[in-house]
Design a protein around this nucleic acid. Sequence first.
RNA 1: AGCGGAGUAGGGCAGUCAGGAGUGCCCGGAGGGCUCAUAACCCUCAGGUCGGAGGUUCAAAUCCUCUCUCCGCUACCA
Length: 660
Amino acid sequence: MKETYYVTTAIAYPNQPPHAGHMLEFIQSDFVARYQRLLGKDVHFLTGTDEHGQKIVEAAKDQGLTTQELVEKNAKIFLDFTKFLNMSNDDFIRTTDQKRHWPSVVKLWNKLKESGDIYKKKYEGLYCVGCEKFVLERELVDGKCQNHNTVPKKLVEENYFFKLSKYAKKIEELISKDEIKVVPKTRKNEILSFLSDDVKDISFSRHKDSLTWGIPVPGDEDQVMYVWCDALTNYISALDYDAEGSLYKKYWPADVHVIGKDILRFHAAYWPAMHLSANIPVPKSIFVHGFLNSKGQKMSKSLGNVIDPYEQIEKYGLEQVRLYLLKNLPSYDDCDYSEEDLTDTVNSELADDLGNLIRRVIVLIEKNFSGNIPKVSSLEDIDKKLVEDSNFFEDFDEFMLGFEFNKALNKLWEFIRATNKYLTDTEPWKIKDKERLGTVLYNALEATRIISCFLYPAMPTTSEDILERIGQKLQNLNEIKFSTKTSGKINKKDEVLFRKIEVKKMESTFPLNLKVAKIVSAENHPDADKLLVLQLDLGSEKRQLVAGIKGYYSLEELVGKKIIMITNLKYAKLRGVESQGMLLAAEAGDVVEVLTTDAPEGTQVSAGNLENNEEQVTFEQFGKLKIVIKDGVPVFEDKVLEASGEKVFVTQVSDGAKVR
RNA sequence: AGCGGAGUAGGGCAGUCAGGAGUGCCCGGAGGGCUCAUAACCCUCAGGUCGGAGGUUCAAAUCCUCUCUCCGCUACCA
């Protein structure tokens, strides 16, 4: 019988649409599932939705739906999301599923009760509906919950409790001995530290008045199960724990629960405690991923740095995003999702390294052997080196076992680079001997076959595409060897594997903030020979400039003229008069001409697609910039300065004139 | 406050458990090679007081002590 592997994601709470964190977890889990399948294992991959709780009820109310309607709608969104991500999950469990989920939950509850681990306790406290929990007096501001700005209700309740305390020591032992392997180590330490403290029993139910949407406690109609016994149980209800059917027998205990660091305690402490109490096996491992940040900070709507998974995937492509998340971000830690890095990954690792390699191999075989994969003959040292490099399975596998996805994929990329190097070094385009040429191209093709198989868990569609192009089939990774018997015909496709993403060079922001300004009045500086004082209208504001253009223009000429001014230059006093910026003028020899435009005053002037800098610049910094006139318009680093599409121009000075 | 983690080239990381010349990877920079290929590929070079101070040692990024900075978990509790 095949070895089994059971992998789960945390079930999503569908009061909000899927966010980047869901995307990360789902893709990581899918990566694991697909990898294990490619090791020939019988994999079961579960995901789903956690649909109970008071927040769902509130969300439904806000949207004018019944609770049932809301969960139907949102569960569908998550189900569609799994398809959108091309997840290979075998099942999708919903906690509102009364046929599949509820019986197992009730059974587990009863087991816990039979073990004497569920008991009733009375307590009194302040309950915040928004938080769905009791809050402490000291957490309140002006008597209100800070998160929801509501006054919590005073409640006296008698609820069921679960004897977590009874199992804390045992679980601590299991985790420290890696019988429940918590990865990464820092999370393991964290949970061990929690368990070694004085662990309290946990609340397992609520009165039906405060929790209206959930699974009733068996034998007590006034009580509804709280999230722990309900939601966590999805991992076994989906296997039909109730009937202890074939799925349950086959797949439980789970090989890995993939979760976020926020729910570590529930999975690494509460959940195994429930197993011990119900006398069922504990999960083998728990992989805890970090959070995705954006621009160095937690994503939040107010910061406007929220990463929307749909938008990202539509913009960059699903497989591109998958690879970026898996390969470029450390799987163990919080990390920063950056579109710039994503672009880098796509352009250099996918287009340049991988896509181009596949193309090279295919074109060479097409040209030299009409697309028929040549036969391999005797191997030279350089060929043997390539064969040796192809044996990276053990390293790859070791990283996969430790859930170090980025490191595993780096191993693959090392081989991709080695194959590119092999082609450069063997120079097949120069080889005259047909037999030797065949051998080299055969080896290159065999390398790409191996590459495409290893690529499959991360990028299944791309992997299949490459295999089709080289006329090969997917092979299990534990069996894959550098073969001498690969044959067939390649299918050259014109379409390139990966298009490059056009880089918007963010790092070279345009240092200046330029705006169109109209000269309202011009007069001579009271105290200087060469200076004029100009009053400007920028549409939304007025500014005063001191400009050194006296002698080049008459005062009458200037009034009404539109000029380009630097608005973020540090203010300076010139001969006693404040200058709140400066205007741009081109200078060639002794000709000086002010830049002008037909655009209305206040219009932003920018350099190509470069972002304008808002921060203040000094005169010295400005002096280092090189803006020159080319074909009558100002240019900065090959970018033409324009006022929202309107031309900025000069008429007198010649090309090459410097702008200052 | 307690516990845990992190700090290594301009950026992102590995190396630290098991001490052995700053060893290495990716991006970026400079130069070169190649011309099969998606202006791709390959090579070379520049760039580091391994957060700081002290200690152990023949030898410290690595071990010990102290210290600074950042982050996570916990914080009389449902």
